[in-house]
Simulated assay, not measured.
Amino acid sequence: MLKQRIITALCLIPVVMGGIFLLPANYFAWALVPIFMIAAKEWGRLIDSKCNITQWTFTFTIAAILVALNIIVPVDSLWFNSRLHPIYEAIIATGVLWWGASTLLVFTYPNSGKLWQKSSLFKSMFGQLTLIPCFTALIALKSVNDQVDPYFGGSLVFLVMLVVWATDTGAYFAGKSFGKHKLMPNVSPAKTIEGLLGGLLTTMVVVAGVMYLSPEQELGLVIAVTLVTAVASAFGDLSESMFKRSANIKDSGNILPGHGGILDRIDSLTAALPVFAFIYVAMWMS
């Protein structure tokens, strides 16, 4: 299992890095559509694990929305006078509100599950609120300052990924070494409070890297944004765990040997990206 995970990761890293830094933003936006279609198909299993019609309906609904976004709001018109297109602003803000609501659902699960776990409509809506803001946040960050510095937006996306990876890695090792107090036992029994704190502490390595490469940044602000993004990523992970537990599914898919599905790999990013993008847009406009 570990060997498979390592091999898959080694194969994925060059592809992900190439997409983030080498693909122009407009190609990047279209390349994401099939990836999010796979994630949508996996979410369809969370809606109804036995009904292929439901799964494919949700998949093509997400695909249609993403294609429409790429056509209606082309990447080269996303930013104008340092202002993000209002459609993208609204979707990202909606995503942040969703993650606030999702966090409440996680805290109150399994009682909260009584409200939605038998409703395909609710679970479909939750899937849209999870995937579409993540897509728009990715495109928004990737396209920042694209005409002047084509690597700047990729660096922002990579920064969010580093925060998520640092949080996950720190949480894993801290949880293994010191974990005693369960974080959300009804949602994910293996996660501990010590693990979460260890993950947050590990993100300070990312802060140190940012301050080293860009010392003009305000340290307190960098720490605050990093911690908020890290906490969001942790609850993104917990949210998917909650939906998988409700659907009695261990992994969202099996397309990535040793890792599960696309959703299993981007669950933390689905929350971290909209939250980081929302903060960045707010700071950019201030």
Rank of each mutant, 00 (worst) to 15 (best):
D168P: 01
A171L: 01
Y172I: 06
F173I: 09
A174E: 13
G175A: 08
G175D: 11
K176V: 15
K176Q: 12
S177Q: 15
F178S: 00
F178K: 05
G179K: 01
G179H: 00
G179Q: 02
K180T: 00
H181K: 14
K182N: 06
K182T: 08
K182A: 13
K182R: 08
L183F: 03
L183H: 01
L183N: 00
N186W: 15
V187S: 15
V187I: 07
S188K: 03
S188V: 13
A190S: 12
K191D: 03
K191E: 12
K191M: 12
I193V: 12
I193T: 11
E194C: 13
E194K: 07
G195Q: 06
G195M: 01
L197K: 12
L197W: 13
L197C: 12
G198H: 00
G198C: 02
G199L: 06
G199I: 15
G199P: 04
L200R: 11
L201G: 14
L201W: 09
L201A: 14
T202R: 07
T202C: 10
T203V: 06
V205K: 03
V206S: 05
V207D: 12
V207G: 06
A208R: 04
G209Y: 15
G209K: 07
G209E: 03
G209D: 03
V210E: 01
M211I: 07
M211H: 02
Y212C: 10
L213E: 13
L213V: 14
S214I: 14
E216G: 11
Q217I: 08
E218V: 07
L219W: 02
G220M: 09
G220F: 14
V222N: 03
I223V: 10
I223Q: 03
A224D: 11
A224V: 05
T226L: 06
T226C: 05
T226N: 10
L227T: 15
T229M: 14
A230N: 06
V231M: 13
A232W: 03
S233T: 06
A234Q: 10
G236S: 08
G236Q: 12
D237R: 11
S239P: 04
S239G: 13
E240Y: 04
M242L: 13
F243S: 10
F243Y: 13
K244D: 10
R245F: 08
S246W: 00
A247S: 09
N248G: 14
N248I: 05
N248V: 08
I249V: 15
K250N: 02
K250W: 04
K250E: 06
S252F: 05
S252C: 04
G253D: 14
G253Y: 04
N254T: 05
I255H: 03
L256N: 13
L256V: 11
G258V: 08
H259D: 08
H259I: 09
G261M: 15
G261S: 09
I262H: 06
I262G: 13
L263N: 10
L263V: 07
D264T: 14
I266H: 01
I266Q: 02
I266A: 03
S268P: 00
S268W: 00
L269T: 05
L269V: 04
